[in-house]
Design a protein around this nucleic acid. Structure first.
Ligand code: FES
Ligand code: FES
Lengths: 144, 144
DNA sequence: ACATATAAAGACCCATTTGTCTTTTTATGA
DNA sequence: TCATAAAAAGACAAATGGGTCTTTATATGT
């Protein structure tokens, strides 16, 4: 499972993308409310994201968060990597220090493909592709 | 990802099964060493498992841990449930409070099947089936 | 130019998970 | 029977993740 921080990050980024698509630049308070996350904690997460250049921000009046738009899509993989590292894609489900085909744990055969599928999902889906599903009415961003 | 405690539990149970298959009843110290886990912490985990009757134990001289053998297999699902609850099988990857087909998050379509596969794995695989893979030389229990 | 709205930064605090240490209980082999 | 080996129990400590509060820096609208 992804950590709460990663989930907050993904939800926040998707919300920002949705707003950007309407030429808006949401601020912290609005984002936190919309994704149902604590405001101060959301602030910390936004700081991590901007520090790692996944996102841009402007301070001061009328400031807020936005994607510069020059980049292509932002993959979920990148977000997960920045927020919690990539161990959820690589580590052994059984707890061995390394997951390898050479000395597999007894879960390796069946768990490997699951990890693969999750990795593929994270690499192929982007903040933008998720936002699009919401815009098309095929998914929701919260349960409000 | 399963928690460390859950992983310790699974490894310990598999080791006990392997020893039981040779008519042995390993004690705490031996188990902890073999699964490469802290002894005192392993003790706590064994207590949880015995309290929930996933495992039997005898105190005193010549004591140790063992499966009573009357039960059929012990599914991974049961172990996970006892150790950390079932949220890893049910919760929303995006962080919504409920995962539902009615109001799906934008990850639901692609993540759902992955969760399904993981649940199936946990329900079908048992401590005994994992032990068998090791006995047959198709997997290892540690990297020692 | 300046007041103000906003993000950034830093110092904390709380909860949970992971891990250790000590004491108690109990079964059993000598 | 009874000393001892073992698990059980309880109290505590460290590490991590999640969360809050206060102060600082800065961009912008007026
Ligand atoms: S070795 Fe355990 S999942 Fe690969
Ligand atoms: S609603 Fe998010 S995974 Fe089902």
């Amino acid at each position: 499972m992804l950590t709460k921080s990663t989930q907050y990050a993904i939800r926040a980024l998707v919300y920002i993308q949705l707003q950007n698509d309407e030429q808006k630049r949401p601020g912290l308070a609005e984002i936190a409310t919309e994704i149902e996350a604590p405001e101060a904690y959301t602030a910390k997460i936004m700081q991590i994201l901007t520090k790692h250049k996944l996102l841009s921000s402007v301070k001061g009046r009328g400031g807020g968060f936005f994607f510069s738009g020059k980049e292509p899509g932002l993959s979920l993989y990148k977000v997960v990597e920045v927020m919690e590292g990539d161990s959820c894609f690589t580590s052994c489900a059984f707890g061995l220090s390394t997951c390898s085909n050479g000395k597999p744990c007894p879960l390796h055969d069946k768990y490997g493909p699951i990890k693969e599928a999750f990795l593929k999902l994270a690499q192929e889906e982007t903040i933008q592709s998720l936002a699009r599903k919401i815009e098309e009415g095929n998914a929701v961003i919260n349960l409000l």
